[in-house]
Nucleic acid binder design. Sequence first.
DNA 1: GTGTTTGCAAACAATTTGCAGAATT
DNA 2: AATTCTGCAAATTGTTTGCAAACAC
Lengths: 128, 128
Amino acid sequence: MNLKHSKQRDSIKAFLATRKDHPTADVVYRNVRESFPNISLGTVYRNLTLLADIGEIARIRVGDSVDHFDYDTSPHYHFVCSECGCVMDLNIPMTEHLSKAAQKNFKGEIEGQVTYFYGRCNNCLSKN
Amino acid sequence: MNLKHSKQRDSIKAFLATRKDHPTADVVYRNVRESFPNISLGTVYRNLTLLADIGEIARIRVGDSVDHFDYDTSPHYHFVCSECGCVMDLNIPMTEHLSKAAQKNFKGEIEGQVTYFYGRCNNCLSKN
DNA sequence: GTGTTTGCAAACAATTTGCAGAATT
DNA sequence: AATTCTGCAAATTGTTTGCAAACAC
């Protein structure tokens, strides 16, 4: 159960740290492979999952059936462009009161909520 | 491009109408097959997609990598149980003001937001 | 040396698609 | 008759897993 050091894991983390655009596993793979030609997609998936599990990165799901990963684990909102699929950060404060409102009259236990926004990004808007 | 009538589509819709628990395509398939033994999974998928596209049903994505479908297309919030995976409705009013707040200082165009809640459902809570 | 991690390939799950025939209009 | 829809099987996509060898401690 103890973690051992691995160059592959390091470079995956290092790559993620350079990006603010929430890459997918495949993007991570293609980029890390440039400095690590033999790395396998399986290793990338394993490490992304591991890093997300121990909280060093965040796994982001925005309804496009592909997981995105974020080096920034602080809570913040995301925006997904319906046209190009890009994912970006939004700079508005997180509100929790909706969870509390939802908890009223609900018999289960609400642990949290997921919220993301969608629309067209600035880039796509200016194209058409 | 014009729709033609189909018994299969009817029975898919009819089945969905009886359920409040947001079944997956596979659940729809297994149930509709009881009255329609020859229906294929492909047909179920095609019709669910078609019905969702024309707005007669809603496709729900709650981060569990399976699409759920809802006969109720009115806007409402959902809860997903992290333990058993069930999806249920929440009876709290929809708020839109978060989208407006997000739009400020954001250059793209925010068209909407997705919010769902997660935790443990009443059923799972009472089991342990 | 023991246990973790890797590369590779095969397996998997959910969904989509090509096609020839059947059903609807 | 024209077009949509179906069943079937194969294909696709994203992700996970089994295994023997390589690596870290």
